[in-house]
Nucleic acid binder design. Structure first.
Lengths: 210, 210, 210, 210
DNA sequence: AATGAATGAGCATTCATTCAT
DNA sequence: CATGAATGAATGCTCATTCAT
């Protein structure tokens, strides 16, 4: 099914050592958690279910995470880390617009790979009262920062529409990318990566003059 | 506060007649429900709270709605109706691109007026397991239909990028509009309507050639 | 379906007069109530259901009966009256044992005609904490009195087993009759009246000597 | 007061082992449940009450039984098992009629020992809509099977009234025994075992000729 | 390091009852 | 006479959390 997000600060461990046992337990819990949380949302997934899906007892969840909220936060964090890493490693050199297209392509790939994480994020992100509002906002801002950075490079290299603030364009780019990504997964049939990128990039092309 | 979505098909009635009493009760419940549901999500709002916020007893909620899920569905439906009406009444005549801009502006206004409804929609929309998945998908499709219609008019009047399918462009337009609209409300400071429209419309301008 | 027990102290009324309207309403309520109460028991039948089955509003039930308990009590009472009347009118003259057999036959007939009432009675009769314990005990005692009376006549006319107290024999006769009657209805297939009577009467024949 | 039905298949365990803890908790729940259920009927006993009477929390009830209906079913089942065991172990050898008398005596003893169970059974047995109709019918049939078996032995050894079918006689015997047993408990004053047996056995003596 | 029994607060839902019309 | 809107106490059940083993 949907790939699981790898446990955040999880030691590697070797051949049956204590930390390794913990690491494996945590990995199983992460995997089970991300899938269930993305599908039904934190409020509709019980610790019992996660424990069962991971093949451990309920007590073990609390041995490894201080609370349900903590588990969700950890899952969210590791997802963020993963995505950020993907988007940070855009190779330099080419035209800034191409680099934005590259970034959009990588983002869409990530969303397709981790739909559960994406859904979880999208569903929780809009509630100021969410227990994870801080984490989610931080994630959003980290990603927006990366996008902005690339857009500024575009603005430096090209003549761009001054009526469109870079910060706002970053937000709408993120929005259109996530909608494109999740719509592929949640609703209708998929469309290929190149087309998806072309659609999202329309906004950038409309922003850049000439 | 956030404006409430008006109860669908609720007559006013006289100052004491039976149907009017019901209508007023329902209106109070709708108003209380949409605010709470948008802020915290259906799972984190109890019927007790909704009843208290509406100033009625818990039993009254169940006298008027068959279940919590039914109440949420009704709230969703009436929100859909309202938004659709706004977007359907775009005046004819001007250039198709301007009509799209008009629609985007109206959508952003609606999102700003009913942020609770918008958040509720955004949070539930991505879960295939949501109890309201059917309603939500229908809503999405109604709105997408309106957008597509306008985009087709643009494609008829102008030379457009053939690499960008209209249907997908509609989805990303909706996504960027919702992100722009909700970001204003949930996170950062507001930006004025015209700028917001300009940002969202960048995608259309990038799609239309010349 | 199962015949309803006629309303107890219900006036006859004529062509649309006030009392007649009430009488008809009460009759409808009685009919609906006895069926539902017998099938599912007082605890599992709501006033709403009774009202709906009778085709009146919930308020009307409370206009006609002071409470749910009162309605059930009235239903029980009218059932008792009906059954007692059947059993009291055994013609004199023949051999006392034949009169007992006649009474058993009539009882079985009644049980078959009003299975709902019978079930209601059987289910509530054994709970000292029942709200209707008084009524039910009174009913039981009225019927037992009739049975005892006939058994005493038998004891006067025949030589009977002195180890078997008449009062206790009356109780077991009632028990076997009710089991025979209800088993026909609740469980397996029916057996004809004469055989049923023969089976119940075995106890009397075993009691009478020679 | 009224003896509780022992939990089915409950091991004793040591003084602190996990399974033993469970066993003790279940035993307390069984004891509390059977008493309350018999006195007031399942519909009028809340899980809160049962938990309180057992000295455990409400959650514990649900940790041990999947639902209220399950708890009641389990109580019913264990009662059945107990009664059946009593009736199955009638010593062979004597006259078949004496064996029937023995069985009746044992049944009356059981009813006197477990009046709560008996009341519960009698009250629920007649409703085809009862949640436990299946269990109750199975119980009834098991007991009827035992009675029939003994009656067939009587029919083989004696000349019996052909107008009285064995199956029906079994039903009326069960009925008179239960009435005799419960009447002792619910209503009037007790009568001694021998007299009670004599009364119930009158039916058998009336069936057997000579 | 892991477990599973126990807990209790929280919640959706039902329903007898009241009362203004 | 009859109605239907409103009420609130009661109840079955869930679930995050604790803790002894």
């Amino acid at each position: 099914m949907s790939a699981a997000v790898a446990p955040a600060g999880t030691g590697t461990g070797g051949r049956g050592s204590r930390p390794a046992r913990t690491a494996r337990t945590r990995a199983k819990l992460f995997e089970a958690a991300i899938t269930l949380l993305g599908e039904r949302g934190p409020a509709h997934v019980s610790i019992d279910e996660i424990a069962a899906a991971a093949g451990v007892s309920k007590g073990t969840v609390y041995y490894n995470f201080s609370s349900k909220a903590d588990l969700v936060a950890k899952v969210l964090e590791s997802g963020v880390d993963l995505m950020e890493e993907r988007l940070r490693t855009i190779p330099d050199g080419s035209d800034p617009v191409d680099r934005v297209a590259d970034m959009v392509g990588r983002a869409l790939e990530f969303l397709a790979e981790y739909p559960s994480f994406t859904r979880l994020w999208m569903s929780e992100m809009w509630r100021p009262s969410s227990q994870w509002h801080t984490e989610l906002t931080a994630l959003r801002d980290r990603l927006l920062g990366l996008i902005r950075e690339q857009l500024h490079a575009v603005a430096d290299a090209h003549d761009v529409d001054p009526a469109v603030p870079v910060d706002q364009l970053a937000v709408t780019l993120m929005g259109s990318a996530m909608f494109a990504g999740l719509s592929r997964d949640t609703h209708g049939p998929a469309l290929d990566r190149d087309t998806a990128v072309a659609v999202v990039m329309a906004a950038v092309r409309g922003w850049v003059r000439g």
